[in-house]
C-alpha cells in the first residue's frame, strides 16, 4: 500500500546530466555543487545526507543558534519532508537561487518562505512573528509601537484589497516594485561554483565538451 521509496533519500550524486537538464546548472556545475554538498553533509555524520544540524552549522558555523528562517529554508529544501536533504533536493532548491533562474521561481520560493502557516497568503500576525524573530536573531531592539508601524506601512502598500492578507498576486506586485526583496533568493556564488570547487574535475563522470 505504501511507497517507501518516496521517503527514502537517494545518496550520492545521481545522474548529473538529468539534474543539469532540469535545473539551471550545467553538468560541471552540478558536479561542483556536489563537492559543496559533500562538505556540508559530512560535518556531523558522514552519511551523504544533510540533516538540519549540518545545515545550521554550514549557515552559522555553530549549531547552537536558533533561527526561524534557517528552519524555514531547510523545510522548503526538504521536499520529501523526511528531515534530511539528499543531493537532488539540495541542487534543485539551490537552482532557484542561481542568478539566471527565472524570476517567477524566486517570487514563488520567497512567498512560500514567508507563508509560515502554508495558508496561501501571508497575514499580519506572520509578518509580526518574522519581524520579531529577525530583530531577536540580530540582537536589535525596537519598541512594539515601531514594529507595529512598520507592519502598518507594509500592509498599506502591499494589501491592495484591504483584506488583511498578502496573497501570491499581491506579493508579486510588491516584489516587482521592490526588487531588493528578492536579493536573498539570488546567490552570485552559484555562478562561480566550478571555480570555487575545482576538485570536481577529479570525480567527474562526464568527458569535457
Amino acid at each position: 500500500c505504501c511507497d517507501f521509496d518516496l521517503y527514502k533519500e537517494s545518496r550520492g550524486l545521481g545522474d548529473p546530466e538529468i539534474l543539469a537538464r532540469e535545473t539551471v546548472f550545467s553538468v560541471s556545475e552540478v558536479e561542483a555543487l556536489y563537492e559543496l554538498f559533500k562538505k556540508i553533509s559530512s560535518a556531523v555524520i558522514d552519511d551523504g545526507l544533510i540533516n538540519k544540524e549540518e545545515f545550521q552549522l554550514a549557515l552559522f558555523k555553530t549549531n547552537k543558534k536558533e533561527s526561524l528562517f534557517a528552519d524555514r529554508v531547510f523545510d522548503l529544501f526538504d521536499t520529501k519532508h523526511n528531515g534530511i536533504l539528499g543531493f537532488e533536493e539540495f541542487a534543485r532548491a539551490l537552482s532557484v537561487f542561481h542568478p539566471n533562474a527565472p524570476v517567477d521561481d524566486k517570487i514563488e520560493f520567497s512567498f512560500q518562505l514567508y507563508d509560515l502557516k502554508h495558508q496561501g497568503f501571508i497575514e499580519r500576525q506572520e509578518v509580526k512573528q518574522m519581524v520579531v524573530a529577525t530583530l531577536a536573531e540580530s540582537g536589535m531592539n525596537l519598541s512594539d509601537d515601531v514594529i507595529e508601524s512598520i507592519i502598518d506601512k507594509t500592509f498599506e502598500e502591499a494589501d491592495t484589497k484591504h483584506d488583511g492578507k498578502i496573497d501570491k498576486e499581491k506579493w508579486r506586485i510588491l516584489v516587482l516594485r521592490h526588487p531588493s526583496l528578492l536579493k536573498n533568493v539570488t546567490l552570485q556564488y552559484l555562478k562561480d561554483i566550478t571555480t570555487t570547487f575545482p576538485s570536481f574535475v577529479f570525480h567527474s563522470q562526464v568527458a569535457d565538451t
Binding site: A58, F60, I150
Partner: peptide, 25 residues
C-alpha cells in the same frame, strides 16, 4: 524619525536567510 522601512526589507536582512555563508570555507 519617520519609519520608512518595509517589514520584508527588515526580514530579508535575517542571517538565517543569508545562504551565501554556505559557500564560506
Amino acid at each position: 524619525k519617520p519609519v520608512t522601512m518595509n517589514a520584508f526589507e527588515l526580514i530579508s536582512t535575517s542571517q538565517g536567510l543569508n545562504l551565501s555563508s554556505l559557500f564560506e570555507k
